[in-house]
C-alpha cells in the first residue's frame, strides 16, 4: 500500500450513470464535502475495503483513494488538480457538472 501522507477520501464512479461519487459515513455521496475522511492508513484501508465490497455489489467502478486537505469548515478538498476537476466539472464549461448544481446553474 502507498505510504499515508495526507488525509484521504474514497472516490469512485457510480455504475449506472457514471457520476463521480465519494464514500460518506453512510453510503456514496455526490458531494465530496460529505465524504468520510481517513486520517491514517488503517482508516484508509477501511475505506478501500468498503469500496471493494461495492465494486463486487456492482454499485461503483474505478474506485481509488485521493489525498485531500481539510479546509476551515472541516470539508475535504482534493490536493491534485485532477481530482479537483472531478469534484467540480469541466473548467471550460462552468455550466456543467457538479459546479453547475452548486452555483444554482442549469441542472
Amino acid at each position: 500500500m502507498a505510504q499515508f501522507k495526507h488525509p484521504q477520501i474514497l472516490i469512485a464512479s457510480n455504475l449506472t450513470d457514471g457520476e463521480v461519487v465519494f464514500l460518506g459515513p453512510s453510503g456514496w455521496e455526490r458531494d465530496h464535502r460529505r465524504a468520510r475522511v481517513a486520517q491514517n492508513a488503517e482508516e484508509a484501508a477501511a475505506l478501500e475495503a468498503s469500496g471493494k465490497r461495492d465494486i463486487s455489489a456492482n454499485r461503483v467502478v474505478d474506485v481509488y483513494l485521493a489525498d485531500v486537505e481539510i479546509g476551515g469548515d472541516g470539508a475535504p478538498t482534493p490536493m491534485h488538480y485532477r481530482e479537483r476537476m472531478r469534484v467540480k466539472g469541466p473548467s471550460v464549461r462552468l455550466d456543467l457538472g457538479k459546479q453547475a448544481a452548486a452555483s444554482g446553474g442549469a441542472p
Binding site: S13, L15, T16, D17, G18, E19, V20, I55, A57, N58, V61, D62, R82, M85, R86, G89, P90, G97, K98
Partner: peptide
C-alpha cells in the same frame, strides 16, 4: 453488467467496442 453476470473487467472491452468510455465526470 448491472446484474453482475459481467464484471467491470469483463464488460469494459465490450462497452469500449461499442464506443462507451468512463471519463472524469461521466
Amino acid at each position: 453488467r448491472l446484474s453482475g453476470a459481467l464484471t467491470e473487467e469483463e464488460f469494459r472491452p465490450f462497452r469500449l467496442m461499442n464506443g462507451l468510455y468512463l471519463q472524469l465526470h461521466a
